[in-house]
Design a protein around this nucleic acid. Structure first.
Lengths: 348, 348
DNA sequence: ATTAGCACTCTCAACCTTTAAATGCTAACA
DNA sequence: TGTTAGCATTTAAAGGTTGAGAGTGCTAAT
């Protein structure tokens, strides 16, 4: 389908350079510009012929007869494919990232938050993270710590990170009750999935509710918490307003309100692919996004893919920067568990 | 200063009604409109005289000779003062709030987050929460719970809520070490302020570092965490774009980037007052906000004022709704500790 | 295959015109 | 003295016109 071979070396040159220029400047490509910046030896007339041909092939289009040309989705796709073959991280921009993004082990929520904020900052684009279903995660450790006000903190350490939630408990629940509850939970569910725990916790609760009055209450709270789906986390929406594409408030708002619709954005950002995925223009299913680009990647810790991250912008997006930043963050996350794996090995 | 007495009953009527209308519609006030909606028996000519007089007194101004009039800051101030005397919560809107805002005890971060999101949702305006300095909070309880990956969770239960942070610790730190560390910290610092803890922890660390090798490391992490200042939390920035006042992207961006400047927004939102504070138009110190309204309130849990919350919008803001929503949330927060106080009493 | 030259197209900004809505003012009225 | 009808006046907003400028496509020559 992407028969790059059809393109003469010169056409390819013109096209890739022009797309790169346009991504930086947002100024339509003209024969004069191409000559001055890339092909001084060739006349504008010749370049006009080339541009004309590229337009006929569907890589460029004019906004109106007497204007320069802008890249089509097809051109961006070509550019991205080429870029992915020749990707080198951009030094300076990623320096900022490397300095700002040190991951200490932390709970999932703040980890996700940090990922979104960092990518948004570096790319200067809105960024969304949607959590995968937690149900498939494997339970490693469970702790329940009583706090004030009829509440307790429950920590579930899983194969995909630590889940950290507040339980409502009865007023006369002692610290020992909490420890005992955690012990029982651990006994039954360590090594099992969260899904398994949801399905079977009731049974366990019934078994123990007579011996320890608080059990049932605790277990009910746990079910409530685990069943609830996390809202997607989004940051940097206002960054869209900087882009000339969205100087019209209406347009910006369409995208922004789409980002706030949990179900829609979840379907947009969630990715099955193992690598970066680029959806450019028409490649997007959602109507509103058909003149946008969406770049998504899975967030994997160890063996568990816990979430997907997505960056949304105009098609004229700095793919190189975005891909570099996302790649970097995704790798850092993988390394966290790498470390943990090593430690486990040593212990054995 | 606010000599409402100068105003005849009729003028006051016209003005308050007109401001209320304008807040809802954003359409400049005309003699015709006033007649039709509030004073059918009086001719437009008479109303023109009245409006003219109100303008001379500085309550209204025309955008140009042949346009209707819009309220000045002075008029909004009068309106707000009147409103605060006659405030009744708006039933329907606050119903949404009451349904959505149930506060379980939780850590400070998520509490703050919930407050911001809720107020922003109900008022349909950007909302910011800035944390007060935590240094004055009194420590009640300290727990350290070891997790994976050289890290532990530290919970400090204070007079103002639970502070919840991840520590980096040495690889060979046992659970007993953590418990012992927490015990020592508790022994020295329970009942003291966090500030006191920061000033004296080093000494304690030195004393114990020989007996328990991990102490120093733990204590260093704690200092780092406590010294760091929390960034303000902001939500709903994009809601500004709905307002006709900000159909111009430039204007919206001015406000939005101001909201993202931590130092500036902190000075804007932080309030010493015990109640709701309204800063209308020129009453704001910051240049950019001089055609905005900023409504702020302290967030108090028990005796501790832990943060300030602020709502930012055009001067033409639904003060009634905003005041109602903020008042409600502020009270709910107070009640949390009320509850806790009761429990403490019972225990004695 | 390339290029110079030129006619052609279209946007953009500036300027003008018209329309409609609101006002201020004057003079009459209760 | 307060109220009102009537009318001239003001102005923004919308629509139309024009000229300049930038870019293209096409033709004919190299």
């Amino acid at each position: 389908m992407e028969d790059v071979e059809n393109l003469s070396e010169r056409k390819k040159n013109i096209l890739l350079n022009s797309v790169a220029d346009y991504i930086q400047s947002a100024v339509p490509i003209t024969s004069k510009m191409v000559k001055e910046q890339h092909m001084v030896d060739i006349s504008t007339a010749t370049l006009r012929n080339e541009l004309n041909a590229l337009e006929a092939m569907g890589y460029l289009k004019q906004l109106h007869t007497s204007s320069g040309r802008v890249p089509t989705s097809k051109a961006y796709r070509l550019y991205v494919n080429w870029l992915m073959k020749n990707l080198t991280f951009k030094g300076e921009e990623l320096d900022v990232l490397k300095r700002g993004f040190n991951l200490k082990a932390q709970n999932l929520d703040s980890l996700i938050d940090k990922v979104a904020k960092t990518i948004s900052k570096v790319t200067d684009l809105p960024t969304v993270v949607v959590m995968n279903d937690l149900k498939k995660l494997i339970i490693e450790e469970i702790k329940i710590i009583p706090l004030i006000d009829y509440s307790a903190l429950m920590l579930i350490q899983t194969s995909g990170g630590i889940i950290n939630n507040t339980l409502e408990i009865d007023e006369n629940t002692s610290e020992e009750d909490c420890i005992e509850s955690a012990r029982v939970l651990h006994q039954y569910f360590a090594g099992k999935t969260i899904e398994y725990m949801i399905d079977n916790i009731e049974e366990v609760a019934n078994k123990y509710s007579e011996r320890i009055s608080v059990f049932k209450k605790v277990f009910e709270s746990i079910i409530d918490i685990l069943k609830e789906t996390k809202s997607p986390v989004h940051t940097g929406g206002t960054k869209l307003l900087n882009k000339p594409e969205y100087s019209d408030v209406e347009k910006a708002q369409q995208i922004l309100s789409l980002m706030e619709d949990d179900d829609v954005i979840r379907s947009v950002v969630k990715t099955e692919d193992d690598n970066l995925t680029f959806k450019i223009g028409k490649e997007n299913d959602i109507e509103t996004l058909q003149d946008c680009a969406v770049i998504t990647a899975p967030l994997t810790i160890g063996d568990e893919t816990i979430a997907s991250v997505g960056v949304i912008g105009p098609q004229r997006i700095d793919y190189e920067l975005v891909a570099g930043a996302m790649q970097y963050v995704v790798n850092e996350l993988k390394n966290i568990k790498q470390l943990k794996g090593d430690v486990d090995e040593e212990k054995k």
